[in-house]
């Protein structure tokens, strides 16, 4: 399996602002690749350069062995792009939208209707796109991006502004797309989304990639603390500190006593010996901790 996308030392400046400042990565065929970072990190600009919407100041992009800039219609038939839920023709129904997009790629209307069914919008076919809910709009948008059966799909913050249930549904759909063997590139500012979906994640901040790898190994590579919480009152702060030992932190916010430790096994064993495991919560490090560790500041989308 070769690399389908190779990005090398991409740079893009807007005046004094370095939106993208030396980004390099490659994406394997069939991979689910995430670009994660807060707003303004340069994710979208990077994605737009890769898609061929913008020209980089310097650096190279190669997709399926082709250059996306200048506009390359041959490449465009092989990539699918989801921009935003609102990128629809005005006052057209869901079915008319996807059929219009299908015909732009020379795809038959029947295939378009099948794609609509695949994203679960069959019963919304006659609803104007404006009246779809956020999640339905995103699914229609993704269906429009997939209608010509592209090899690579680019998704720009597909779950922004969705409620939790709609996000979960969307994730299932995205996994399904990736399971069909397509390469998926996704930008997101949700840590949990990247963690749950992506094979590999590039963490971006300030136009640069800070770290790149599978979410689990990024988290594991962290000299991280595991947080163990118990209900306040079940254990005094003093005995908690005694159990946790030196180097650990103990905190009582009035609701729970939280022990932060780099040796969770020992602490848990000690708690089990005292029969204190009821209602216990154990939280390992997340990508948020990775971000905090990398930038020294709290992650805020």
């Amino acid at each position: 399996m070769g690399s389908t996308i190779i990005v090398n030392d991409l740079r893009k400046h807007y005046g004094q602002v370095r939106a993208v400042d030396g980004v390099s990565f490659s994406v394997e065929q069939g991979e689910f690749f995430g670009i994660l970072g807060p707003n303004g990190a340069g994710k979208t600009t990077t994605l737009e350069i890769v898609e061929g919407l913008r020209e980089a100041d310097s650096g190279t992009v190669e997709i399926l062995g082709m250059r996306p800039w200048p506009r390359n219609p041959k490449l465009l038939t092989r990539i699918g792009v989801q921009l935003q839920a609102t990128s629809f023709f005005e006052r057209l129904t869901a079915r008319e939208q996807i059929r219009t997009f299908a015909s732009l790629y020379g795809v038959a209307a029947k295939k378009a209707d099948e794609m609509l069914a695949q994203v679960g919008l069959e019963d919304k076919a006659d609803t104007p796109a404006e009246r779809l809910s956020g999640g339905q709009g995103q699914r229609l948008s993704i269906a429009c991006a997939l209608v010509h059966d592209p090899d690579i799909v680019f998704l720009d913050e597909p779950s922004a502004a969705l409620d939790p249930q709609a996000r979960r549904n969307l994730w299932d759909l995205l996994r399904q797309i990736n399971d069909n063997g397509r390469t998926v590139v996704l930008t997101t500012h949700y840590m949990d989304e990247a963690e749950s979906l992506c094979d590999r994640v590039a963490i971006m901040d300030d136009g640069r990639i800070l770290e790149l790898g599978p979410p689990a190994s990024l988290v594991r590579g962290l000299e991280s603390v595991t947080r163990i919480s118990l209900e306040t009152g079940t254990l005094s702060v003093e005995s908690a500190a005694e159990i946790a030992g030196p180097g650990a932190s103990v905190d009582d916010d009035g609701v729970s006593v939280t022990i932060g430790t780099d040796d969770p096994a020992r602490v848990l064993t000690a708690l089990a010996e005292r029969n204190l495991l009821t209602g216990i919560q154990v939280r390992g490090a997340t990508l948020e901790d990775v971000f905090l560790n990398l930038t020294g500041r709290e992650y805020r989308a």
Partner: peptide, 17 residues
């Protein structure tokens, strides 16, 4: 304007049209 604001122009740029 609406095609530009709603990014339909962009979307069309990314289609082989």
């Amino acid at each position: 304007v609406t095609w530009r604001e709603k990014r339909i122009l962009r979307r069309l740029r990314l289609a082989p049209v």
